[in-house]
């Protein structure tokens, strides 16, 4: 049962990723990526990571991807502007081969991993637990991330302004 669900969501996410990489129009690609991200969220839920599951939908699918789609629609690129300079056949094949070789090598390394445990504590991945952890063990990284976000906001405002 779990295995079937895993394969469905895994297939969806891989399919969405492939479509994203291959579609000519970035908007179609963005929609495919949303499907991929949503099925990844389902996989997070299967891994008992409820907090990450909610954040994945809220942040990735709900905010970042909407921002990307908003940008695509704002630019509203024409067919000519979307035309990419052709990648040479040799170069393309080389990139593909390098990626596949890298992937196969990586998966072979992954084989060495131990199986890991089956047991899951009932409170594993709870929002309370993760939140407590974030504000105790990871307090400094947390604060640094907030500063980083602030810097990003200021930077974007500066970039977006025509006259400062």
């Amino acid at each position: 049962m779990q295995l079937v669900a895993f394969y469905i969501f895994a297939a969806l996410s891989v399919l969405g990723a492939i479509l994203m990489v291959t579609r000519k129009n970035p908007l179609g690609g963005a929609v495919a990526l949303v499907v991929s991200l949503a099925s990844l969220a389902a996989l997070f839920a299967m891994l008992h990571a409820e907090f990450v599951f909610i954040l994945q939908i809220l942040l990735y699918a709900g905010a970042i991807m909407v921002l990307i789609i908003f940008t695509i629609m704002l630019l509203n690129l024409s067919r000519e502007e979307l035309k990419e300079p052709p990648v040479g056949k040799v170069k393309g094949l080389f990139i593909l081969a390098a990626t596949v070789v890298g992937l196969v090598g990586f998966i072979r390394v992954l084989r060495l991993l131990p199986e890991g445990t089956e047991y899951v504590a009932p409170t594993f991945g709870n929002i309370e637990k993760v939140g407590t952890m974030m504000l105790t063990d990871y307090l400094y990284p947390f604060e640094i991330i907030s500063v980083l976000l602030l810097v990003a906001i200021v930077g974007v405002v500066l970039l977006a302004k025509k006259i400062i």
């Binding site: 929609v31 949303v34 949503a38 909610i54 954040l55 939908i57 809220l58 699918a61 709900g62 905010a63 909407v66 789609i69």
Partner: peptide, 10 residues
Amino acid sequence: ILAITSLEVY
């Protein structure tokens, strides 16, 4: 609910 409704915009 917040997460799911953020998908509505699509």
